[in-house]
């Protein structure tokens, strides 16, 4: 936010927010009808947006013989739970792996990006700007190119088809993003806080761990959420680097239903439905923190 007006506006926003934290900028006294109208409109938009998701659920419940019925069935009235039966029986280990991979990616991303963000935001070394630009560019490398390069390295090191290997690969999606986010959030922390700690004789590492990290809770939640979501839905790395072996994530579990000649679509869709439930819950829970985190990051003195 280099525009003076914007940064000034922000500063004021901070005060405003302190006074009434849950207040939305556009909120104005409005009639009850207007409120209802907005809710109705919101419901409508959401319904349109989620129609493909509904269709996915519909297909997951459809019998093989009705999949291409013309005209298509709007409701799976004469449906089947075959897909779900297959998923419940077979997919749970994959869900477990996805969970481990997701959490592992979150941990690795945090460990790598938080100190880097602190250094870039508060210690400002020579060459920091260049590093930030490299991080920006790093996000531009297509995943498939990364995956091909990784394959050769992983083969040599024997981490192909292992969970740590996949965590490492998945983290490459999130680490540049994480560093940039942490940099932004941590530059918002007042210098006085750090100086006080330094004067008290704390090392920079100690300052980072016991002063910076605790006040960066929002940034940690934001980065964690994105790292988790990317790892959860990653397919390119998983299929290239973890195509074999015992521990495969849910995006590959779907391949149980994609044979070399045949695909079981109701089971594929059912897998997606089942797989998205834990992630959706996580999202709804984290939603509050994320909104708060993002705002806090944008608002700084």
């Amino acid at each position: 936010m280099t525009a003076a007006s914007a940064s000034q506006g922000r500063r004021r926003a901070a005060h405003d927010r302190a006074a009434s934290p849950r207040r939305a900028p556009h909120a104005r006294p409005a009639g009850r009808t207007k409120q209802h109208l907005k809710t109705a409109l919101g419901l409508f938009f959401t319904a349109v947006m989620l129609f493909p998701v509904y269709w996915m659920i519909n297909v997951s419940l459809t019998k093989d013989t009705d999949m291409r019925a013309d005209p298509p069935r709007l409701l799976p009235l004469d449906g089947t739970l075959e897909g779900y039966r297959a998923v419940i029986e077979q997919q749970m280990p994959y869900l477990g792996t996805s969970l481990i991979v997701g959490l592992g990616t979150v941990a690795l991303t945090l460990v790598l990006s938080a100190p880097a963000g602190f250094a870039l935001a508060k210690l400002r070394p020579k060459g920091g700007g260049a590093l930030s630009f490299v991080l920006l560019i790093a996000q531009m490398i297509p995943g498939i190119i990364m995956a091909m390069g990784f394959y050769a390295i992983y083969l040599r090191l024997g981490v192909l088809n292992t969970v740590p290997g996949l965590i490492l690969a998945d983290s490459t999606i999130a680490v540049p993003f994480g560093v940039l986010i942490f940099t932004a959030f941590m530059s918002g922390i007042p210098d006085e806080l750090i100086n006080a700690a330094l004067i008290d004789g704390a090392t920079r590492w100690r300052t980072f761990v016991s002063v910076i990290l605790p006040v960066s809770r929002n940034a940690i939640v934001t980065v964690s959420l994105f790292a988790f979501l990317w790892a959860w839905s990653d397919f390119v790395f998983a299929s290239t680097l973890d195509g074999g072996g015992d521990a495969q994530p849910i995006t590959l579990g779907i391949y149980q239903y994609i044979g070399n000649n045949n695909q079981q679509w109701n089971a594929i869709m059912a897998t997606a439905v089942v797989a998205s439930i834990p992630a959706t819950l996580l999202l709804i829970i984290a939603q509050r923190y994320v909104a708060a985190g993002v705002t806090a990051g944008a608002v700084k003195d």
């Binding site: 024997g158 981490v159 292992t162 740590p164």
Partner: peptide, 12 residues
């Protein structure tokens, strides 16, 4: 950093 240095490669 991730896997712990003691763990040896188990595939390939």
């Amino acid at each position: 950093l991730v896997a712990g240095c003691s763990s040896s490669s188990d595939s390939g």
